[in-house]
């Protein structure tokens, strides 16, 4: 059985809501597709679907994950091809149902079917640790934990890592989202070391707090396609680390400083 599978399924989760799971899922999915992999991003947040909006595919939804599970349609019919990338697909959540519409075993079956045809399955998990979270992790081979530099988010991340371990998903990787280097410098925000000290997991990447993310999210174009944005660069690095490349961590020093220092950076090469 194990050998037949082709792809890898990765669940993006956090425990706490609003830390950027959906944005991260959209960007990672898009990034992997940009590198030529075939990717399905799966919105597991039934009842509160967002991933379609963030990817700008909302108006193309005909069938959703519940239709697939209930066999109202074929899996292929529910997959929405991305506007810009040939090999990127979205499996949208249902909006009119709730989390009881899908069970863990149905999810495992669905993800296994997807893995036979695609390189990466990115599962965007709902917030919380209830049923929606449980079926989201059921089909996952690996996990990416998203947190922000806040004590509450880190606490929830810790809880989730514990539950993942109990479900035999070991060594999740961490993305610290929305960090503000100026605040860290002043000692007003948790720094990466503080977070890693508690969570003791491998760091996959650090994404700076960047207004470009808000702009691109509202436009339905993942920021990873924005060549200039620092957050886009951070996501591109994250994707390269997912496929196993060694990439140095971004220098976020100058993110929130004035134009002068940016000029200096350009003129004198950092």
């Amino acid at each position: 059985m194990e050998n037949e599978k082709k792809g890898t399924s990765i669940v993006v989760t956090s425990g706490k809501g609003g830390v950027g799971k959906t944005t991260t899922s959209a960007n990672i999915g898009t990034g992997l597709a940009m590198l030529g992999y075939s990717v399905v991003v799966l919105d597991a947040d039934i009842g509160l679907r967002n991933l379609d909006v963030v990817m700008g595919l909302e108006n193309r939804i005909v069938y959703d994950i519940v239709d697939v599970v209930e066999k109202n349609c074929k899996l292929k019919q529910a997959l929405i091809k991305d506007k810009r990338h040939e090999n990127l697909y979205l499996l949208p959540a249902a909006q009119t149902k709730d989390k009881t519409a899908v069970s863990s075993s149905q999810m495992v079956e669905l993800v296994n079917e997807l893995k036979e045809n695609y390189d990466y399955i990115i599962i965007d998990s709902p917030a919380g640790i209830e049923q929606g979270f449980q079926y989201s992790i059921a089909g996952a081979d690996e996990a990416i934990i998203v947190t922000t530099p806040e004590v509450s988010a880190v606490r929830d991340a810790d809880r989730v890592i514990g539950i993942l371990e109990a479900n035999e998903i070991y060594q999740p990787k961490l993305i610290v989202n929305r960090i503000r280097q100026d605040m860290v410098k002043r000692g007003d925000m948790m720094n990466i070391e503080d977070i890693l000290d508690i969570l003791a997991v491998k760091l996959l990447g650090v994404v700076p707090d960047d207004e470009n993310v808000v702009i691109s999210t509202n436009r339905g174009e993942p920021v990873i396609m924005d060549e200039k944005a620092l957050s886009g660069k951070a996501y591109r690095n994250i994707v390269r680390r997912i496929i196993g490349e060694e990439v140095d961590f971004l220098n976020l020093e100058n993110t929130n400083q004035g134009k002068l220092s940016k000029m200096m950076k350009i003129l004198f090469g950092r």
Binding site: R155, D156, D158, R159, I161, G162, I163, E165, I198, A200
Partner: peptide
């Protein structure tokens, strides 16, 4: 190993943790 938020160990004797005990 590390005990994470939400994990609990109860015992009718002594407990030795070889690892960290995180908040929660």
């Amino acid at each position: 190993g590390t005990l994470r938020s939400g994990q609990e160990v109860s015992y009718n004797g002594n407990i030795v943790v070889i690892g960290d005990v995180n908040p929660g």
